[in-house]
Nucleic acid binder design. Structure first.
Lengths: 228, 228
DNA sequence: GTCATCATGTAAGCCGTTACATGATTGC
DNA sequence: GCAATCATGTAACGGCTTACATGATGAC
C-alpha cells in the first residue's frame, strides 16, 4: 500500500523522502503522517528491488546523475561547494527517481485486486486512476461498488436481528453508517456512469452486468486517511 | 481496542470466544471478522490480567459458578455427563465472565482519550456510550467533532494549494471525502445537541464552549468496520 | 547561541493478520 | 461415512507505529 503510494507520486516527478511524506499527507490525504520509520525502509526496499534509483542531490535541481564514487571526501567536498555557491545549501538529500521496472511494478500493484478491499486502498487507487486503462478503471469502481453493496446488505440483515437490543447510541451509529454507505454507493454510481460514457465501446463484460445491477442500496465510501 | 470491544460485550452477558466473534461482526460492525488468531490470545490476556474469569461450560445456561477445582478428570466427567444428558452436547466451550476488575478496566479504557482518534475507536466507544457518565459521553462527542473539524480545515487548505494539479478522479475523491466529513460533523452536532438537552445541568466546561463552537463545517464520520 | 525545521535513518514494539493444527457435533 | 459448522488454539509474519539517534541550515 505504502509502496503503491510512493511509486504513484514518483510517476510524476522525482522527490526525496521528506517531501514524499508531505505529499502523502497533503495531496493524497491517505496516510496522514506516515512515519519515517516506515517511509525510509520502504524507499530502501523499492531501491533494492530496482523500482527506484536514488541520487544524492548535489546542487541544482535536475543535476547530472553523479554515480557514487565511493570517495566520501570527494562527495563531501562537492556538497560543501554546492552549499556555499547556490540557492540554499541543503544536506545531502536523497532524491528518488522511478525506473522502468518501477513503472511496471506500479501498474501491476495498481490494477491488482486487493482482496477484501478497505477504503484506504480504494481511495489510493482512485487517486491514481488516471494511470489505469479505461476498462481497469471501470473494474476498480465496480469492484468497490459491489463490496459496499454486499456490506450494506449484511449490515442491514444484522441490524434487523439485533435492532431490538440496540440502545439509541448504537442505533444512531448504525443508521449513520448505513446512510454514509448509501451515499458512497451513489457517488460510485455517478463515477461509473461517467466512466461508461467516456468509453462507450465497453466490451460488455459479464462481471459488469451481472452482480452490479442486482441491488442499488449498498454503501460505505472512501473514508481513508482516518488514522492520522 | 479489541480488548475494549470484548469487555464491552461481556458487560451484558457471559459469552464464549466463538460467540464473541459473531457479536463483534454482527452487533458492533466494527472488527468485521476478527480473526481467532487475535481473539483468543486477547481473551487469555484479559483472563491473566484478572479482567475475565473463564468457566468450562458444563451443561445448562446460567450454570452455577463452579469454581475451578483443579481436578481435570472431575471436570471432564462433568462435561461428558452434560453432553449425554441435555439439550445438545457441546464441546467444552470456555465461557467468559467479566469481573469487577474487568469492569474497572473497561471504564478506564472507554473514557480514555485514544489520542489521534481514528474512526474505528470512536465508533466502538459510541456503541458503548450508554456505559459512560453523561459528561464523559459529551466529551467523547465533542472530542470527535473537534478532530473532524480540524481535519476538514486541513484538507481544505491542502486542497486549495494542490487543486490545480489534481486530475478529475483525485478531485472527485477529495470532494466526496469532504462532503462525507461535513455530514459526519452535522450528525455529531445533532448527537451533541440531544446530549446537552438530556443534561441541562452541564457544568459549562471550557473545552466545550471554546474550540467546539469555532467552525461548523468539519467532518469525517464513523466508517469503522471498513477492513472486513 | 539556540531553536525550529529540514533531513535521514535504526530499533523495538503493537496490533492485527493468515495459515496451520485439532477435534467435537449435527445433518445428510 | 462425510461435509459443514462449531470451537479453541499456536506460529509466523506484516505493516505500521513510537522512540531514539544524528546532524545540517536558517531565523532570531
Amino acid at each position: 500500500m505504502l509502496e503503491l503510494a510512493i511509486l504513484g507520486l514518483l510517476e510524476d516527478q522525482e522527490l526525496h523522502g521528506y517531501e514524499i511524506r508531505k505529499r502523502l499527507r497533503d495531496e493524497l490525504g491517505v496516510f496522514s503522517n506516515v512515519s519515517f520509520g516506515s517511509l525510509y525502509p520502504a524507499l530502501s526496499r523499492l531501491e533494492r528491488s530496482g523500482a527506484l534509483e536514488a541520487v544524492e542531490e548535489t546542487d541544482r535541481p535536475a543535476a547530472p546523475p553523479v554515480p557514487m564514487t565511493g570517495s566520501l571526501s570527494g562527495e563531501r567536498a562537492a556538497m560543501r561547494a554546492a552549499r556555499t555557491t547556490s540557492t540554499r545549501g541543503r544536506r545531502g538529500r536523497k532524491v528518488y527517481r522511478i525506473t522502468e521496472e518501477g513503472r511496471r511494478q506500479f501498474t501491476v500493484l495498481l490494477d491488482s485486486d486487493p482482496g477484501p478491499d478497505d477504503a484506504r486502498s480504494f481511495g489510493l487507487r482512485l487517486a491514481f486512476a488516471r494511470y489505469l486503462p479505461p476498462q481497469a478503471r471501470l473494474r476498480l469502481l465496480e469492484r468497490r461498488r459491489a463490496q459496499l453493496a454486499e456490506r450494506l446488505s449484511e449490515t442491514r440483515a444484522a441490524a434487523r436481528d439485533a435492532e431490538s437490543r440496540l440502545d439509541p447510541y448504537a442505533r444512531s451509529l448504525v443508521e449513520h453508517t448505513t446512510e454514509s454507505t448509501e451515499q458512497d454507493i451513489s457517488w460510485l454510481d455517478r463515477l461509473i456512469e461517467a466512466e461508461r460514457a467516456r468509453v462507450p465501446a465497453a466490451p460488455a463484460s459479464t462481471r459488469a452486468t451481472g452482480p452490479a445491477g442486482a441491488e442499488l442500496t449498498v454503501s460505505t465510501v472512501v473514508r481513508e486517511g482516518e488514522i492520522r
